[in-house]
Design a protein around this nucleic acid. Structure first.
Lengths: 153, 153
DNA sequence: ACAAAATAGTACTATAATAGTCCACTTTAA
DNA sequence: TTAAAGTGGACTATTATAGTACTATTTTGT
């Protein structure tokens, strides 16, 4: 129901690949070959991950990329956030053209979208990169909204 | 970090609008005007919601749309799923070209994506349409307004 | 029966977002 | 000092989305 771009897919595979040898530098070429994409595209994704602080880069010959943190300290929310940008709808509060929604003052939808974003973010943050390298599935324990947050109808 | 299309935004506003008067038929024109979009676009979204079983439509003059279920029985997962389609990455298991990922047999990433999808889906399913009509996360409503009273637009 | 008003289905076009590529520049080890 | 690596930014091609239009079908009132 939500679509993630190819680059996010690549990025996840890259991070998982790096998480298997977290102490070593890996060149963009190595990484590109490992996950089966072309080098230019791989470098694009690696740049994004580096600028977001998830990877550290080393220049020069013998350079390459390495995880900036341990796999347990990196979550899927980090990775997806780095490659997809912040969650967001297109209008409804983003573009402040009045009259577009004539009940702006008391618009309950906008406020509730933030709760939804938070819930999705929590779900993604509950999966660490370390878990992504583990073959089998441990069930994800989602943080359900507390009673106080719930609006009982 | 995840982007939802405009149509999903429209759909959410429509569903919220209908949830305020769940017993009445609303024409596409009414709905389009209420949320401030053009009629052709509105009808497109309404068709999608109807085909997904979230709305019931009545044809002919005096026709229109009405919620197929009560607002408490409709979740944001339903609405988003109807308008965005199923969650999905682009490759990695979708296009089965071998060699693309040379460790396909033991690919832990693919399996874990399903866990993530499930977690996101759970998060979205935890928010009902009824909750979307409530102004803000005020934990306890002192006087529970009747459905008719909630119609204040 | 017929006309008017509404939805249904589908196809088409325009626009926007994404993916992918390329090049000039910088850094570093041998 | 040269070769191999990353950096930044701009560019193009492709794809997905949004929006529109048209025809058919259904229903109500006269």
């Amino acid at each position: 129901m939500i679509k993630m771009g190819k680059l996010t897919d690549y990025g996840t595979l890259m991070m998982t690949y790096l998480a298997r040898e977290p102490k070593r530098l890996h060149s963009a070429q190595d990484i590109a070959q490992a996950i089966g994409i072309n080098v230019p595209t791989a470098t694009k994704v690696l740049k994004m991950l580096t600028r977001s602080g998830l990877l550290e880069s080393h220049r020069g010959i013998k350079g390459g990329y390495i995880l900036a943190k341990t796999p347990v300290d990196i979550t899927m929310a980090d990775i997806i956030g780095a490659l997809e940008g912040p969650i967001g709808l297109t209008d409804c509060g983003t573009s402040d053209q009045p009259g577009n929604c004539q009940r702006e003052r008391s618009c309950s939808v906008k406020a509730n979208w933030q709760r939804i974003s938070q819930a999705v973010n929590d779900a993604l943050a509950s999966v660490s990169l370390a878990e992504m390298t583990v073959p089998v599935a441990q069930p994800i324990v989602m943080k359900r909204p507390s009673k106080a947050e719930q609006v009982t109808l």
